[in-house]
């Protein structure tokens, strides 16, 4: 294991994959000499050259379209979208072309492309700080990956760069300042493999991306009160590792989902619904952003988003409600 900055784990994954697969090309704003908005492509232009590491104009629609077309025609493009908010501009080629290509061509064409985007709030305000994972998981044909550690950024990005179809890899601004352990040898994190970050018997809390770290903090708060929360980091938003999730809620009987995106039709809403279908009597609660845009004001930003205290409070409420229900049933 080596401890690497988040960006270094990304650069290492890309570099190794580009070395292995000459059809991988990178396209995005400021990724060449500048080395990426988060310095996550530093050194790649120098190593792999201008033909494989291409700066694009500020034009997300054509950037994603280029990736989709190039993927259909034999390359394996990695398109960088600085903030996931801007992916809205490039959704047409992603959703209308790449995601449907294998199906609509009867498997004669595929679009093995990766869109890498950065989500999450860190003072950037309404259109630079959203979390749109649930929009993307709604689209058949798209794989959505979201690491919360350097090691998973490395392992998931390598998986993405070998995937048969379009992958949206979403990281989070608050992960970049952190370091994390990365395996020294090649270790891929497969799709649909959630990670149990902390074991617990009272409730299961499912989160992904930066909210996994927030949830681990919340679990520490709960532990002081004698509540043992099992924390599961999805890592793969779609496809979901249902088996790991189901096994956990069968042990705990309670599920809290936590995400930075909206609760309405959110990642957690889907997970809670499916697990309730699988397990009679499962008690669920969800926590996401309040129904308001993200603000650049730190006060409004943190008002909108879950933090460790709110996660812990939701967990307490869920367990308390469950106890009251039990009392109501027995009396």
């Amino acid at each position: 294991m080596s401890r690497l900055f988040f960006r270094e784990a990304i650069a290492r994954a890309i570099s190794e994959e580009m070395q292995r697969d000459p059809t991988i090309i990178l396209m995005g704003q400021d990724i060449a000499e500048h080395g990426g908005s988060y310095a996550e492509t530093r050194g790649l232009f120098e190593r792999f050259g201008a033909a494989r590491v291409r700066n694009t104009p500020v034009a997300e629609a054509v950037t994603v379209g280029l990736a989709a077309g190039a993927a259909a025609a034999g390359l394996r493009p990695l398109a960088f979208i600085t903030y996931v908010d801007f992916l809205m501009i490039g959704l047409d080629p992603l959703v209308n072309y790449a995601a449907k290509l294998k199906f609509k061509s009867a498997a004669q064409l595929t679009a093995p492309m990766v869109v890498k985007a950065t989500a999450g709030a860190k003072g950037q305000g309404p259109t630079h700080a959203q979390s749109l994972d649930s929009w993307l998981m709604n689209v058949p044909g798209i794989t959505v990956l979201a690491p919360s550690t350097s090691g998973d950024a490395y392992g998931l990005l390598k998986t993405a760069l070998r995937a048969p179809g379009p992958v949206v890899y979403i990281d989070h601004k608050r992960l970049f300042p952190l370091g994390g352990e990365v395996p020294d040898g090649e270790t891929l994190v497969p799709v649909a493999s959630a990670a149990i970050r902390r074991e617990g018997r009272h409730l299961t809390i499912v989160a992904h991306s930066y909210m996994s770290l927030v949830t681990i903090e919340a679990a520490k708060l709960l532990a002081k009160e004698g509540i043992e929360a099992e924390v599961i980091d999805l890592r793969s938003v779609w496809p979901v590792d249902w088996d790991t999730l189901e096994a956990s809620v069968r042990r705990t009987g309670h599920l809290l989902t936590v995400e930075e995106g909206q609760e309405v039709c959110g990642v957690g809403t889907e997970i809670a619904f499916v697990l309730q279908e699988r397990l009679d009597g499962l008690r669920v609660a969800r926590l996401g952003a309040r129904r308001m845009p993200v603000s650049a004001s730190p006060v409004l930003e943190s008002y909108a988003l879950p933090d460790a205290e709110r996660v812990a409070a939701s967990a307490r409420r869920l367990l308390q409600r469950a106890r009251q229900d039990d009392v109501a049933v027995t009396t």
Binding site: F5, L178, G179
Partner: peptide, 9 residues
């Protein structure tokens, strides 16, 4: 401490 929630090397 002004650096906030970061790690440094």
């Amino acid at each position: 401490v002004e650096l906030g929630d970061v790690e440094v090397r």
